[in-house]
Write a protein that binds this DNA or RNA. Structure first.
Length: 565
RNA sequence: UGGGGCGUCGUCAAGCGGUUAAGACACAGGUUUUUGAUGCCUGCAUACGGAGGUUCGAAUCCUCCCGCCCCAGCCA
Protein backbone atom coordinates (compact mmCIF):
# COMPACT_ATOMS: atom_id res chain seq x y z
CA UNK A 1 0.00 0.00 0.00
CA UNK A 2 1.04 3.56 0.50
CA UNK A 3 4.67 3.48 1.43
CA UNK A 4 4.99 5.13 4.79
CA UNK A 5 7.93 7.19 5.89
CA UNK A 6 10.93 5.18 4.85
CA UNK A 7 12.69 6.40 7.96
CA UNK A 8 10.28 4.59 10.25
CA UNK A 9 11.86 1.26 11.16
CA UNK A 10 8.79 0.00 13.00
CA UNK A 11 6.22 -2.07 11.23
CA UNK A 12 2.59 -1.69 11.95
CA UNK A 13 0.78 -3.96 14.36
CA UNK A 14 -2.88 -4.18 15.24
CA UNK A 15 -2.54 -2.79 18.74
CA UNK A 16 -0.67 0.25 17.54
CA UNK A 17 -3.50 0.78 15.05
CA UNK A 18 -6.12 0.54 17.77
CA UNK A 19 -4.24 3.10 19.83
CA UNK A 20 -3.83 5.37 16.84
CA UNK A 21 -7.51 5.16 16.00
CA UNK A 22 -8.43 5.86 19.60
CA UNK A 23 -6.31 8.97 19.62
CA UNK A 24 -7.55 10.07 16.20
CA UNK A 25 -11.16 9.80 17.31
CA UNK A 26 -10.29 11.44 20.61
CA UNK A 27 -11.65 8.39 22.35
CA UNK A 28 -9.77 8.86 25.59
CA UNK A 29 -9.29 12.60 25.20
CA UNK A 30 -6.24 11.77 23.19
CA UNK A 31 -4.47 10.30 26.17
CA UNK A 32 -3.07 6.80 26.40
CA UNK A 33 -2.22 4.95 29.57
CA UNK A 34 -0.97 1.38 29.62
CA UNK A 35 0.34 -0.83 32.38
CA UNK A 36 2.67 -3.75 32.88
CA UNK A 37 1.11 -6.00 35.55
CA UNK A 38 3.42 -8.88 36.54
CA UNK A 39 2.58 -11.27 39.35
CA UNK A 40 5.64 -11.35 41.63
CA UNK A 41 5.92 -15.12 41.60
CA UNK A 42 9.06 -15.53 39.50
CA UNK A 43 11.66 -13.73 37.45
CA UNK A 44 10.84 -11.92 34.24
CA UNK A 45 11.73 -13.66 30.97
CA UNK A 46 12.01 -12.64 27.33
CA UNK A 47 8.28 -13.14 26.90
CA UNK A 48 7.70 -10.47 29.52
CA UNK A 49 10.18 -8.28 27.67
CA UNK A 50 7.84 -8.41 24.68
CA UNK A 51 4.99 -7.19 26.86
CA UNK A 52 7.16 -4.56 28.55
CA UNK A 53 8.37 -3.19 25.22
CA UNK A 54 4.81 -3.17 23.95
CA UNK A 55 3.27 -1.39 26.92
CA UNK A 56 6.04 1.06 27.71
CA UNK A 57 6.86 1.47 24.02
CA UNK A 58 3.31 2.40 23.05
CA UNK A 59 3.06 4.87 25.90
CA UNK A 60 6.34 6.50 24.89
CA UNK A 61 5.43 6.55 21.23
CA UNK A 62 2.11 8.30 21.76
CA UNK A 63 3.12 10.62 24.58
CA UNK A 64 1.25 8.64 27.20
CA UNK A 65 2.19 6.89 30.40
CA UNK A 66 2.74 3.32 31.52
CA UNK A 67 2.26 2.08 35.07
CA UNK A 68 4.07 -0.72 36.80
CA UNK A 69 1.61 -2.71 38.87
CA UNK A 70 2.30 -5.85 40.83
CA UNK A 71 -0.67 -8.15 40.53
CA UNK A 72 -0.34 -9.55 44.03
CA UNK A 73 -3.64 -11.23 44.76
CA UNK A 74 -2.30 -14.69 45.55
CA UNK A 75 0.02 -14.49 48.57
CA UNK A 76 0.73 -18.21 48.51
CA UNK A 77 2.96 -17.84 45.46
CA UNK A 78 4.33 -14.35 45.74
CA UNK A 79 7.52 -13.07 47.33
CA UNK A 80 9.34 -9.82 47.85
CA UNK A 81 12.50 -11.11 46.12
CA UNK A 82 10.53 -11.42 42.93
CA UNK A 83 9.27 -7.86 43.30
CA UNK A 84 12.84 -6.64 43.57
CA UNK A 85 14.09 -8.67 40.61
CA UNK A 86 11.24 -7.44 38.42
CA UNK A 87 11.97 -3.81 39.28
CA UNK A 88 15.63 -4.32 38.50
CA UNK A 89 14.92 -6.00 35.17
CA UNK A 90 12.51 -3.35 33.93
CA UNK A 91 14.98 -0.62 34.80
CA UNK A 92 17.77 -2.51 33.13
CA UNK A 93 15.71 -2.83 29.97
CA UNK A 94 15.61 0.94 29.97
CA UNK A 95 12.03 1.74 30.89
CA UNK A 96 10.54 3.88 33.61
CA UNK A 97 7.01 3.86 34.89
CA UNK A 98 4.68 6.68 35.70
CA UNK A 99 4.61 7.73 39.34
CA UNK A 100 4.82 5.25 42.16
CA UNK A 101 4.83 1.51 41.75
CA UNK A 102 1.28 0.20 42.13
CA UNK A 103 0.17 -2.93 43.89
CA UNK A 104 -3.20 -4.55 43.45
CA UNK A 105 -3.08 -5.18 47.19
CA UNK A 106 -3.35 -1.43 47.73
CA UNK A 107 -6.84 -1.66 46.29
CA UNK A 108 -8.09 -4.44 48.58
CA UNK A 109 -10.37 -2.13 50.56
CA UNK A 110 -11.91 -0.67 47.44
CA UNK A 111 -12.27 -4.14 45.93
CA UNK A 112 -14.07 -5.33 49.03
CA UNK A 113 -16.50 -2.41 48.80
CA UNK A 114 -17.13 -3.20 45.16
CA UNK A 115 -17.88 -6.79 46.05
CA UNK A 116 -20.48 -5.57 48.55
CA UNK A 117 -21.83 -3.35 45.81
CA UNK A 118 -22.37 -6.36 43.54
CA UNK A 119 -24.04 -8.25 46.41
CA UNK A 120 -26.44 -5.36 46.91
CA UNK A 121 -27.31 -5.49 43.22
CA UNK A 122 -27.98 -9.20 43.66
CA UNK A 123 -25.11 -9.92 41.29
CA UNK A 124 -22.96 -11.80 43.77
CA UNK A 125 -23.53 -14.39 46.48
CA UNK A 126 -21.72 -16.39 49.09
CA UNK A 127 -21.53 -20.05 48.19
CA UNK A 128 -20.95 -22.89 50.68
CA UNK A 129 -20.14 -25.44 48.02
CA UNK A 130 -16.61 -26.76 48.22
CA UNK A 131 -14.16 -26.74 45.32
CA UNK A 132 -15.15 -30.19 44.09
CA UNK A 133 -18.83 -29.38 44.23
CA UNK A 134 -18.36 -26.14 42.41
CA UNK A 135 -16.46 -27.92 39.70
CA UNK A 136 -19.18 -30.48 39.44
CA UNK A 137 -21.87 -27.82 39.23
CA UNK A 138 -19.93 -25.96 36.56
CA UNK A 139 -20.66 -28.59 33.92
CA UNK A 140 -18.39 -29.12 30.94
CA UNK A 141 -17.71 -27.22 27.74
CA UNK A 142 -20.52 -29.09 26.06
CA UNK A 143 -22.89 -29.43 29.02
CA UNK A 144 -24.26 -26.43 30.82
CA UNK A 145 -23.84 -26.11 34.56
CA UNK A 146 -26.31 -26.11 37.43
CA UNK A 147 -27.12 -23.39 39.88
CA UNK A 148 -25.71 -23.68 43.35
CA UNK A 149 -28.32 -24.30 46.05
CA UNK A 150 -26.94 -21.19 47.79
CA UNK A 151 -27.45 -18.96 44.79
CA UNK A 152 -30.58 -17.27 46.07
CA UNK A 153 -29.52 -16.13 49.46
CA UNK A 154 -30.84 -12.74 50.44
CA UNK A 155 -28.77 -9.62 50.03
CA UNK A 156 -28.64 -9.19 53.77
CA UNK A 157 -27.50 -12.74 54.39
CA UNK A 158 -24.84 -12.42 51.69
CA UNK A 159 -23.54 -9.18 53.13
CA UNK A 160 -23.30 -10.69 56.58
CA UNK A 161 -21.70 -13.89 55.35
CA UNK A 162 -19.18 -11.99 53.24
CA UNK A 163 -18.30 -9.83 56.25
CA UNK A 164 -17.84 -12.98 58.29
CA UNK A 165 -15.54 -14.37 55.62
CA UNK A 166 -13.49 -11.21 55.82
CA UNK A 167 -13.47 -11.39 59.63
CA UNK A 168 -11.98 -14.83 59.62
CA UNK A 169 -15.00 -16.68 60.91
CA UNK A 170 -14.68 -19.47 58.38
CA UNK A 171 -11.89 -21.83 57.56
CA UNK A 172 -9.96 -21.73 54.29
CA UNK A 173 -12.07 -22.97 51.43
CA UNK A 174 -15.27 -23.12 53.46
CA UNK A 175 -16.98 -20.43 51.43
CA UNK A 176 -16.42 -18.27 48.39
CA UNK A 177 -18.03 -15.19 46.94
CA UNK A 178 -19.32 -15.81 43.44
CA UNK A 179 -20.71 -13.59 40.70
CA UNK A 180 -24.28 -14.38 39.73
CA UNK A 181 -24.16 -14.52 35.95
CA UNK A 182 -25.25 -17.54 33.93
CA UNK A 183 -24.58 -21.20 34.65
CA UNK A 184 -25.60 -22.08 31.10
CA UNK A 185 -23.15 -19.77 29.37
CA UNK A 186 -21.00 -21.31 26.64
CA UNK A 187 -18.14 -19.38 28.19
CA UNK A 188 -17.10 -21.23 31.34
CA UNK A 189 -15.77 -18.01 32.85
CA UNK A 190 -19.31 -16.67 32.97
CA UNK A 191 -20.71 -19.62 34.93
CA UNK A 192 -20.79 -17.80 38.26
CA UNK A 193 -17.05 -17.28 38.60
CA UNK A 194 -15.44 -17.16 42.02
CA UNK A 195 -14.67 -13.59 43.05
CA UNK A 196 -13.16 -14.08 46.50
CA UNK A 197 -11.66 -17.03 48.31
CA UNK A 198 -10.64 -17.53 51.93
CA UNK A 199 -6.91 -17.96 52.13
CA UNK A 200 -4.77 -17.70 55.22
CA UNK A 201 -1.36 -16.93 53.85
CA UNK A 202 1.08 -14.22 54.76
CA UNK A 203 1.04 -11.54 52.12
CA UNK A 204 4.38 -9.91 51.32
CA UNK A 205 2.82 -6.47 51.63
CA UNK A 206 -0.42 -6.66 53.60
CA UNK A 207 0.88 -9.25 56.01
CA UNK A 208 -1.95 -10.99 57.84
CA UNK A 209 -4.43 -8.18 57.49
CA UNK A 210 -6.59 -10.16 55.11
CA UNK A 211 -7.77 -13.73 55.00
CA UNK A 212 -9.84 -13.30 51.88
CA UNK A 213 -8.28 -12.42 48.55
CA UNK A 214 -9.87 -11.36 45.29
CA UNK A 215 -9.39 -13.53 42.24
CA UNK A 216 -7.59 -12.16 39.21
CA UNK A 217 -10.88 -11.55 37.43
CA UNK A 218 -12.23 -9.48 40.30
CA UNK A 219 -9.07 -7.45 40.67
CA UNK A 220 -7.53 -6.78 37.33
CA UNK A 221 -10.22 -4.81 35.53
CA UNK A 222 -10.97 -2.67 38.56
CA UNK A 223 -7.29 -1.98 39.07
CA UNK A 224 -7.09 -0.89 35.46
CA UNK A 225 -10.13 1.26 36.04
CA UNK A 226 -8.75 2.88 39.18
CA UNK A 227 -5.57 3.76 37.32
CA UNK A 228 -7.54 5.01 34.29
CA UNK A 229 -5.74 2.61 32.03
CA UNK A 230 -6.91 3.18 28.46
CA UNK A 231 -5.53 0.02 26.90
CA UNK A 232 -5.22 -3.09 29.04
CA UNK A 233 -2.99 -5.31 26.96
CA UNK A 234 -2.70 -8.98 27.86
CA UNK A 235 -2.12 -12.33 26.23
CA UNK A 236 -4.48 -14.49 24.22
CA UNK A 237 -5.53 -16.85 26.98
CA UNK A 238 -7.45 -13.98 28.55
CA UNK A 239 -9.71 -13.52 25.56
CA UNK A 240 -12.28 -15.73 27.25
CA UNK A 241 -12.10 -13.52 30.31
CA UNK A 242 -12.89 -10.31 28.48
CA UNK A 243 -16.69 -10.78 28.75
CA UNK A 244 -16.24 -11.10 32.50
CA UNK A 245 -13.86 -8.15 32.63
CA UNK A 246 -16.49 -6.08 30.82
CA UNK A 247 -19.35 -7.47 32.92
CA UNK A 248 -17.75 -6.48 36.21
CA UNK A 249 -16.77 -3.01 35.06
CA UNK A 250 -20.19 -2.40 33.56
CA UNK A 251 -22.11 -3.53 36.63
CA UNK A 252 -19.91 -1.51 38.92
CA UNK A 253 -20.50 1.47 36.68
CA UNK A 254 -16.89 2.55 36.73
CA UNK A 255 -14.41 3.76 34.10
CA UNK A 256 -14.09 1.12 31.39
CA UNK A 257 -10.64 0.37 29.98
CA UNK A 258 -10.31 -1.65 26.77
CA UNK A 259 -8.75 -5.08 27.06
CA UNK A 260 -6.72 -6.14 24.02
CA UNK A 261 -5.08 -9.54 23.62
CA UNK A 262 -1.99 -10.56 21.67
CA UNK A 263 -0.09 -13.83 21.20
CA UNK A 264 2.56 -14.60 23.76
CA UNK A 265 6.11 -15.20 22.60
CA UNK A 266 7.53 -18.66 22.05
CA UNK A 267 11.25 -19.01 21.42
CA UNK A 268 13.06 -21.93 19.86
CA UNK A 269 15.16 -24.26 22.02
CA UNK A 270 13.80 -22.90 25.26
CA UNK A 271 10.70 -22.68 27.43
CA UNK A 272 8.90 -19.53 28.44
CA UNK A 273 6.69 -20.56 31.28
CA UNK A 274 7.38 -19.30 34.77
CA UNK A 275 6.20 -22.57 36.21
CA UNK A 276 8.68 -24.62 34.18
CA UNK A 277 11.50 -22.16 34.67
CA UNK A 278 10.88 -22.40 38.39
CA UNK A 279 11.11 -26.16 38.06
CA UNK A 280 14.50 -25.86 36.33
CA UNK A 281 15.70 -23.73 39.22
CA UNK A 282 14.25 -25.91 41.96
CA UNK A 283 15.58 -29.13 40.50
CA UNK A 284 19.04 -27.58 40.07
CA UNK A 285 19.20 -28.05 36.34
CA UNK A 286 20.52 -24.51 36.27
CA UNK A 287 22.36 -22.42 38.84
CA UNK A 288 19.43 -20.08 39.40
CA UNK A 289 16.97 -17.76 37.71
CA UNK A 290 19.94 -15.79 36.41
CA UNK A 291 21.82 -18.75 34.99
CA UNK A 292 23.11 -17.50 31.63
CA UNK A 293 21.27 -20.33 29.89
CA UNK A 294 17.92 -19.18 31.22
CA UNK A 295 15.62 -17.16 28.94
CA UNK A 296 15.13 -14.74 31.85
CA UNK A 297 16.07 -11.10 31.61
CA UNK A 298 18.54 -11.61 34.43
CA UNK A 299 19.99 -14.68 32.69
CA UNK A 300 20.44 -12.80 29.46
CA UNK A 301 21.98 -9.88 31.29
CA UNK A 302 24.49 -12.21 32.88
CA UNK A 303 25.12 -13.89 29.57
CA UNK A 304 26.14 -10.57 28.06
CA UNK A 305 23.07 -9.62 26.05
CA UNK A 306 22.41 -5.88 25.94
CA UNK A 307 19.09 -4.21 26.74
CA UNK A 308 19.27 -2.55 23.33
CA UNK A 309 19.46 -5.90 21.58
CA UNK A 310 16.50 -7.27 23.52
CA UNK A 311 14.42 -4.20 22.74
CA UNK A 312 15.39 -4.48 19.09
CA UNK A 313 14.36 -8.12 19.10
CA UNK A 314 11.00 -7.27 20.62
CA UNK A 315 10.40 -4.68 17.93
CA UNK A 316 11.37 -7.06 15.16
CA UNK A 317 9.19 -9.97 16.19
CA UNK A 318 6.08 -7.85 15.89
CA UNK A 319 2.78 -8.21 17.68
CA UNK A 320 -0.06 -10.30 16.35
CA UNK A 321 -2.71 -12.78 17.40
CA UNK A 322 -1.29 -15.86 15.68
CA UNK A 323 0.55 -18.30 17.91
CA UNK A 324 4.10 -18.52 16.72
CA UNK A 325 7.58 -19.56 17.63
CA UNK A 326 10.40 -17.18 16.88
CA UNK A 327 13.76 -18.65 15.94
CA UNK A 328 16.58 -18.20 18.42
CA UNK A 329 18.66 -17.13 15.40
CA UNK A 330 16.83 -13.81 15.34
CA UNK A 331 17.62 -13.04 18.97
CA UNK A 332 21.24 -13.99 18.38
CA UNK A 333 21.34 -11.79 15.33
CA UNK A 334 20.13 -8.83 17.38
CA UNK A 335 22.80 -9.47 20.00
CA UNK A 336 25.57 -9.72 17.42
CA UNK A 337 24.43 -6.65 15.55
CA UNK A 338 24.51 -4.54 18.71
CA UNK A 339 27.72 -5.95 20.10
CA UNK A 340 29.47 -5.68 16.76
CA UNK A 341 29.15 -1.92 17.02
CA UNK A 342 30.09 -1.71 20.69
CA UNK A 343 32.31 -4.53 21.84
CA UNK A 344 36.03 -4.02 22.19
CA UNK A 345 38.06 -6.60 20.30
CA UNK A 346 40.57 -8.61 22.29
CA UNK A 347 42.56 -11.75 21.72
CA UNK A 348 41.84 -14.77 23.85
CA UNK A 349 42.90 -18.33 23.22
CA UNK A 350 40.27 -20.71 24.50
CA UNK A 351 42.07 -24.02 23.89
CA UNK A 352 45.77 -23.22 23.84
CA UNK A 353 48.44 -24.79 21.66
CA UNK A 354 51.99 -23.60 22.19
CA UNK A 355 53.81 -22.08 19.24
CA UNK A 356 57.48 -21.04 19.15
CA UNK A 357 58.92 -18.74 16.52
CA UNK A 358 62.40 -20.16 16.19
CA UNK A 359 63.94 -17.22 14.35
CA UNK A 360 62.52 -14.61 16.68
CA UNK A 361 65.16 -13.33 19.12
CA UNK A 362 64.92 -14.86 22.55
CA UNK A 363 63.92 -12.37 25.20
CA UNK A 364 62.66 -9.83 22.68
CA UNK A 365 59.29 -8.27 23.32
CA UNK A 366 57.39 -6.01 20.95
CA UNK A 367 54.40 -3.88 21.80
CA UNK A 368 52.21 -4.15 18.74
CA UNK A 369 49.39 -1.80 17.97
CA UNK A 370 45.94 -3.33 17.82
CA UNK A 371 42.70 -1.59 16.89
CA UNK A 372 40.00 -1.84 19.53
CA UNK A 373 37.08 -1.92 17.14
CA UNK A 374 37.25 -1.59 13.37
CA UNK A 375 33.54 -0.64 13.41
CA UNK A 376 34.22 2.31 15.65
CA UNK A 377 37.23 4.47 14.71
CA UNK A 378 36.81 6.48 17.89
CA UNK A 379 37.56 3.41 19.98
CA UNK A 380 41.29 3.82 19.34
CA UNK A 381 44.06 1.31 19.69
CA UNK A 382 45.92 -0.55 22.38
CA UNK A 383 49.29 -2.24 22.73
CA UNK A 384 49.56 -6.00 22.68
CA UNK A 385 52.78 -7.75 23.71
CA UNK A 386 54.38 -10.12 21.20
CA UNK A 387 57.22 -12.51 21.89
CA UNK A 388 58.92 -15.70 20.77
CA UNK A 389 56.52 -18.05 22.47
CA UNK A 390 52.84 -17.76 21.85
CA UNK A 391 49.59 -19.63 22.22
CA UNK A 392 47.24 -20.19 19.35
CA UNK A 393 43.92 -21.98 19.17
CA UNK A 394 44.16 -25.76 18.88
CA UNK A 395 41.55 -25.82 16.17
CA UNK A 396 43.67 -23.45 14.08
CA UNK A 397 46.18 -26.19 13.30
CA UNK A 398 45.66 -29.40 11.40
CA UNK A 399 48.32 -31.94 10.60
CA UNK A 400 46.41 -33.13 7.60
CA UNK A 401 44.14 -30.30 6.52
CA UNK A 402 41.26 -30.55 4.10
CA UNK A 403 41.04 -28.32 1.04
CA UNK A 404 40.31 -24.67 1.79
CA UNK A 405 41.62 -24.90 5.33
CA UNK A 406 43.09 -21.41 5.55
CA UNK A 407 44.83 -21.96 8.85
CA UNK A 408 48.06 -23.48 10.02
CA UNK A 409 49.39 -26.84 8.78
CA UNK A 410 52.83 -28.26 8.18
CA UNK A 411 54.68 -26.05 5.69
CA UNK A 412 51.82 -23.57 5.47
CA UNK A 413 51.81 -19.85 6.11
CA UNK A 414 49.41 -17.79 8.11
CA UNK A 415 49.10 -14.22 9.32
CA UNK A 416 49.13 -13.54 13.03
CA UNK A 417 46.65 -10.74 13.65
CA UNK A 418 48.31 -7.36 14.21
CA UNK A 419 51.74 -9.09 13.81
CA UNK A 420 53.70 -11.16 11.36
CA UNK A 421 53.33 -13.85 8.76
CA UNK A 422 54.60 -17.15 10.08
CA UNK A 423 55.29 -20.52 8.54
CA UNK A 424 54.90 -23.84 10.26
CA UNK A 425 58.16 -25.75 10.10
CA UNK A 426 57.74 -28.53 12.59
CA UNK A 427 55.28 -30.04 15.00
CA UNK A 428 56.11 -31.76 18.22
CA UNK A 429 54.09 -34.65 19.57
CA UNK A 430 54.02 -36.45 22.87
CA UNK A 431 54.18 -40.23 23.32
CA UNK A 432 50.48 -40.55 22.56
CA UNK A 433 50.76 -38.70 19.31
CA UNK A 434 49.11 -35.55 20.57
CA UNK A 435 50.48 -32.36 19.14
CA UNK A 436 52.03 -30.38 21.98
CA UNK A 437 53.91 -27.62 20.22
CA UNK A 438 54.51 -25.99 16.88
CA UNK A 439 57.84 -24.62 15.67
CA UNK A 440 57.47 -21.82 13.19
CA UNK A 441 59.54 -19.15 11.48
CA UNK A 442 58.42 -15.61 10.82
CA UNK A 443 58.90 -13.05 8.08
CA UNK A 444 60.36 -9.99 9.90
CA UNK A 445 59.33 -7.65 7.08
CA UNK A 446 55.71 -8.70 7.11
CA UNK A 447 54.69 -6.61 10.10
CA UNK A 448 52.15 -3.88 9.50
CA UNK A 449 54.01 -1.17 7.59
CA UNK A 450 56.80 -3.56 6.63
CA UNK A 451 57.98 -4.24 3.09
CA UNK A 452 56.11 -7.50 2.74
CA UNK A 453 53.12 -6.44 4.82
CA UNK A 454 50.94 -6.51 1.74
CA UNK A 455 51.54 -10.16 0.98
CA UNK A 456 48.21 -11.89 0.59
CA UNK A 457 47.80 -14.67 3.06
CA UNK A 458 44.44 -16.37 3.29
CA UNK A 459 44.30 -17.08 6.98
CA UNK A 460 44.68 -14.82 9.98
CA UNK A 461 44.89 -16.21 13.48
CA UNK A 462 44.50 -14.67 16.91
CA UNK A 463 47.15 -15.41 19.52
CA UNK A 464 48.44 -14.50 22.96
CA UNK A 465 52.04 -14.08 24.07
CA UNK A 466 52.78 -17.00 26.40
CA UNK A 467 54.78 -15.09 28.98
CA UNK A 468 52.23 -12.28 29.13
CA UNK A 469 49.10 -14.38 29.03
CA UNK A 470 46.83 -14.62 32.06
CA UNK A 471 44.72 -17.57 32.86
CA UNK A 472 40.94 -17.36 32.80
CA UNK A 473 37.85 -19.50 32.99
CA UNK A 474 35.50 -19.25 30.08
CA UNK A 475 32.01 -20.66 30.17
CA UNK A 476 30.59 -21.76 26.85
CA UNK A 477 26.81 -21.81 26.69
CA UNK A 478 24.57 -23.60 24.25
CA UNK A 479 20.84 -24.19 23.93
CA UNK A 480 19.25 -25.39 27.16
CA UNK A 481 17.07 -27.89 25.30
CA UNK A 482 17.85 -30.36 22.57
CA UNK A 483 14.68 -29.84 20.60
CA UNK A 484 13.72 -26.62 18.93
CA UNK A 485 10.29 -27.03 20.45
CA UNK A 486 10.71 -28.57 23.91
CA UNK A 487 7.14 -27.69 24.85
CA UNK A 488 5.93 -30.18 22.26
CA UNK A 489 7.12 -33.12 24.23
CA UNK A 490 4.78 -34.02 27.06
CA UNK A 491 4.83 -32.46 30.48
CA UNK A 492 7.01 -32.11 33.50
CA UNK A 493 8.34 -35.64 33.49
CA UNK A 494 10.29 -35.06 30.31
CA UNK A 495 11.49 -31.61 31.20
CA UNK A 496 14.86 -32.87 32.34
CA UNK A 497 15.17 -35.53 29.67
CA UNK A 498 14.87 -32.87 26.99
CA UNK A 499 17.71 -30.86 28.46
CA UNK A 500 20.85 -30.43 26.40
CA UNK A 501 23.66 -32.04 28.35
CA UNK A 502 26.15 -29.86 26.48
CA UNK A 503 24.45 -26.61 27.37
CA UNK A 504 27.40 -25.64 29.53
CA UNK A 505 31.08 -26.29 28.86
CA UNK A 506 33.64 -24.83 31.21
CA UNK A 507 37.12 -24.11 29.89
CA UNK A 508 39.55 -23.65 32.78
CA UNK A 509 42.79 -22.86 31.03
CA UNK A 510 42.11 -20.05 28.63
CA UNK A 511 44.83 -17.55 27.82
CA UNK A 512 43.77 -13.93 27.89
CA UNK A 513 45.39 -10.60 27.10
CA UNK A 514 46.70 -9.08 30.34
CA UNK A 515 44.53 -5.98 29.86
CA UNK A 516 41.44 -8.11 30.42
CA UNK A 517 42.21 -8.42 34.13
CA UNK A 518 41.01 -4.84 34.51
CA UNK A 519 37.58 -5.72 33.17
CA UNK A 520 34.52 -4.61 35.07
CA UNK A 521 32.06 -7.39 35.76
CA UNK A 522 29.40 -7.18 33.09
CA UNK A 523 31.66 -5.63 30.47
CA UNK A 524 31.43 -7.17 27.03
CA UNK A 525 34.08 -8.03 24.47
CA UNK A 526 34.54 -9.65 21.15
CA UNK A 527 37.13 -12.35 21.53
CA UNK A 528 38.53 -12.11 18.04
CA UNK A 529 37.27 -14.88 15.77
CA UNK A 530 35.56 -16.63 18.71
CA UNK A 531 32.47 -14.67 19.63
CA UNK A 532 31.11 -12.16 22.10
CA UNK A 533 31.88 -12.65 25.77
CA UNK A 534 30.99 -10.97 29.01
CA UNK A 535 32.90 -10.71 32.29
CA UNK A 536 30.64 -12.61 34.67
CA UNK A 537 28.63 -10.33 36.93
CA UNK A 538 28.93 -12.62 39.92
CA UNK A 539 32.12 -14.60 39.63
CA UNK A 540 34.60 -12.37 37.84
CA UNK A 541 37.53 -11.09 39.88
CA UNK A 542 40.96 -9.92 38.72
CA UNK A 543 42.45 -12.90 40.55
CA UNK A 544 40.22 -15.42 38.87
CA UNK A 545 38.66 -13.94 35.79
CA UNK A 546 35.52 -15.60 34.46
CA UNK A 547 33.90 -14.88 31.13
CA UNK A 548 30.62 -16.06 29.65
CA UNK A 549 30.06 -16.59 25.98
CA UNK A 550 27.05 -14.53 24.93
CA UNK A 551 26.97 -15.68 21.33
CA UNK A 552 29.37 -16.98 18.69
CA UNK A 553 30.37 -15.06 15.63
CA UNK A 554 28.78 -16.25 12.41
CA UNK A 555 31.01 -19.05 11.30
CA UNK A 556 31.04 -19.87 7.61
CA UNK A 557 33.96 -22.22 7.97
CA UNK A 558 32.18 -24.28 10.61
CA UNK A 559 29.33 -24.76 8.15
CA UNK A 560 31.66 -25.84 5.37
CA UNK A 561 33.55 -28.16 7.70
CA UNK A 562 30.30 -29.70 8.86
CA UNK A 563 29.21 -30.36 5.31
CA UNK A 564 32.47 -32.14 4.58
CA UNK A 565 31.91 -34.59 7.39
C1' U B 1 -20.58 -32.08 20.05
C1' G B 2 -20.14 -25.76 23.71
C1' G B 3 -17.55 -20.92 23.87
C1' G B 4 -13.37 -17.91 22.24
C1' G B 5 -9.34 -17.22 18.75
C1' C B 6 -5.89 -18.11 14.64
C1' G B 7 -4.26 -19.89 9.48
C1' U B 8 0.33 -14.95 4.01
C1' C B 9 7.89 -17.62 2.13
C1' G B 10 12.01 -22.40 6.36
C1' U B 11 10.83 -18.60 10.86
C1' C B 12 8.49 -14.02 12.37
C1' A B 13 5.39 -10.48 9.88
C1' A B 14 3.20 -6.15 6.69
C1' G B 15 -1.13 -6.09 3.86
C1' C B 16 -7.76 -3.25 5.58
C1' G B 17 -11.15 -4.34 -2.81
C1' G B 18 -6.66 -2.29 -7.81
C1' U B 19 0.78 -3.33 -4.91
C1' U B 20 5.64 -6.49 -9.44
C1' A B 21 2.25 -9.68 -2.12
C1' A B 22 6.63 -4.98 2.31
C1' G B 23 10.57 -5.88 5.60
C1' A B 24 13.59 -8.82 8.87
C1' C B 25 15.89 -13.46 10.24
C1' A B 26 17.42 -17.97 7.91
C1' C B 27 19.34 -19.92 3.46
C1' A B 28 22.31 -19.67 -1.37
C1' G B 29 25.84 -17.17 -4.49
C1' G B 30 29.30 -13.05 -5.37
C1' U B 31 32.54 -9.12 -3.42
C1' U B 32 35.65 -6.31 0.25
C1' U B 33 38.60 -7.72 4.42
C1' U B 34 45.44 -8.66 8.62
C1' U B 35 38.46 -11.47 12.39
C1' G B 36 36.38 -17.67 7.22
C1' A B 37 33.61 -11.63 11.43
C1' U B 38 31.56 -7.00 9.68
C1' G B 39 30.10 -4.31 5.27
C1' C B 40 28.30 -4.32 0.27
C1' C B 41 25.66 -6.74 -4.08
C1' U B 42 22.36 -10.60 -5.94
C1' G B 43 18.73 -14.49 -5.52
C1' C B 44 14.74 -16.49 -2.55
C1' A B 45 5.82 -16.82 -2.00
C1' U B 46 2.57 -16.68 -10.18
C1' A B 47 0.90 -16.86 -4.52
C1' C B 48 -1.94 -15.90 0.62
C1' G B 49 -5.19 -23.44 4.52
C1' G B 50 -9.02 -25.60 0.67
C1' A B 51 -13.43 -25.22 -2.44
C1' G B 52 -17.15 -22.28 -4.24
C1' G B 53 -19.37 -17.32 -4.76
C1' U B 54 -19.76 -11.62 -5.17
C1' U B 55 -16.95 -8.07 -8.27
C1' C B 56 -14.37 -5.13 -14.20
C1' G B 57 -10.87 -6.58 -10.21
C1' A B 58 -10.23 -10.73 -4.03
C1' A B 59 -4.85 -12.38 0.51
C1' U B 60 -8.53 -8.57 1.51
C1' C B 61 -16.08 -9.22 1.09
C1' C B 62 -19.68 -13.78 1.50
C1' U B 63 -20.62 -19.25 2.12
C1' C B 64 -19.10 -23.99 3.27
C1' C B 65 -15.11 -27.13 4.53
C1' C B 66 -10.14 -28.35 6.69
C1' G B 67 -6.31 -27.60 10.29
C1' C B 68 -4.15 -25.50 14.77
C1' C B 69 -4.46 -22.93 19.69
C1' C B 70 -7.07 -21.51 24.41
C1' C B 71 -11.11 -22.48 28.24
C1' A B 72 -14.03 -27.19 32.95
C1' G B 73 -8.03 -23.34 39.48
C1' C B 74 -11.10 -21.36 45.51
C1' C B 75 -3.74 -19.67 39.80
C1' A B 76 -2.49 -15.34 37.06
Amino acid sequence: MNKENDADPTTSNFIREIVKDGIATNKQEGHICTRFPPEPNGFLHIGHAKSICLNFGLANEFGGTCNLRFDDTNPSKEEEVYVQSIIEDIKWLGFSWAGEIRYTSEYFDQLYDWAVCLIKKELAYVDDLNADEIREHRGTPTQSGRNSPFRNRSVEENINLFASMKNGEFSDGAKVLRAKIDMTSGNLNMRDPVLYRILRAHHHRTGDQWCIYPMYDFAHGQSDSIEKITHSICTLEFEDHRPLYDWIIKNLGIYHPQQIEFARLNLGYTLLSKRKLLQLVKEDHVSGWDDPRMPTISGMRRRGYTPESIRDFCERIGVAKANSTVEMALLEHCVREDLNKKAKRVMVVLRPLKLTITNYPEGQIEELTAENNPEDPKSGTRKVPFSRELYIEQEDFMEDPPKKFFRLAPGKEVRLKHAYIIKCEEMIKDRNGNITELKCTYDPDSKTGGSTAGRKIKGTLHWVSAQHAKKAEVRIYNHLFINENPANGQGDLTLSSGLNKESLEILQDCKIEPSLLDSKPGSRFQFLRMGYFCADLKDFTPDSPVFNRAVTLRDTWAKIAKQKK
